[in-house]
């Protein structure tokens, strides 16, 4: 059978997939909104336990990585393979740094004994349990997406290197970029909800 290439269809499919991701996280935001409305005070206090500086750093680097991915697409469109690979390397590096930060952040919480099912949490009441349950679950699912993103970037970079992705056929890079922006988009909302508002 002739393989029929239709870049727009591929991109269309990617967008539909992004919609499913948006609604998946969307429902977690619904859960968050419901419990915040039930325990406003406990959520406010619990939110102050999180490290705003670390959260801000992660937000900033994730935004930068989004920009570098977007620019890597411009680079490939110009046929600038070297620039494209450089930009993708930066993105990959940032994704790893994000995970390292996350590791330290979660580690600190565990050290305090703030993890699902811990005794320390149990003493702090329902609102706090729910806040940290949501925090770990939502940032956990988000981190899982970052890990998948790291895998995708490694694959895409190899393809660029092998010239499988090039000036006229870069839909893989474009779709990976879309995925990465989705991950960024989710974080844009997670960050204020957990770290900032109180």
């Amino acid at each position: 059978m002739t393989i029929h290439r239709d870049d727009l269809a591929d991109k269309f499919g990617m967008w539909l997939f992004i919609f499913t991701e948006l609604l998946l996280f969307g429902m977690l935001f619904v859960v968050y909104a419901v419990y915040r409305s039930m325990h406003p005070e406990a959520f406010r206090i619990a939110g102050e336990e999180l490290d705003v500086a670390l959260g801000t750093i992660n937000t900033v680097i994730l935004l930068i990585s989004s920009a570098t991915v977007a620019m890597s697409i411009t680079a490939i469109q110009k046929g600038d393979k070297k620039r494209c690979l450089q930009l993708l390397s930066i993105t990959l590096l940032i994704a790893v740094i994000f995970m390292v930060n996350k590791y330290f952040e979660w580690g600190a919480k565990f050290e305090y004994g703030f993890y699902p099912g811990s005794d320390a949490l149990a003493e702090l009441g329902h609102g706090t349990i729910l806040f940290f349950g949501l925090y770990f679950f939502m940032t956990g699912i988000h981190a899982l997406h970052i890990l998948i993103g790291i895998g995708l970037f490694i694959y895409v970079m190899l393809q660029v290197k092998k010239n499988k992705i090039h000036q006229t056929d870069y839909i893989w890079l474009e779709n990976t970029g879309l995925y990465w922006h989705l991950v960024d988009l989710i974080w844009i909302f997670l960050f204020p909800l957990f770290y900032l508002i109180h």
Binding site: F19, T20, E21, L23, L24, F25, M27, L28, V31, P116, G117, I129, L130, G133, L134, F136, F137, I141
Partner: peptide, 23 residues
């Protein structure tokens, strides 16, 4: 547009049973 909702709901049930997360 709807299937992801059950996806995350079932994930929550799994988290509930495995981690006692309390949602």
């Amino acid at each position: 547009l709807a299937t992801p909702v059950i996806g995350i709901t079932l994930m929550l049930i799994i988290a509930e049973r495995m981690l006692g997360i309390g949602f």
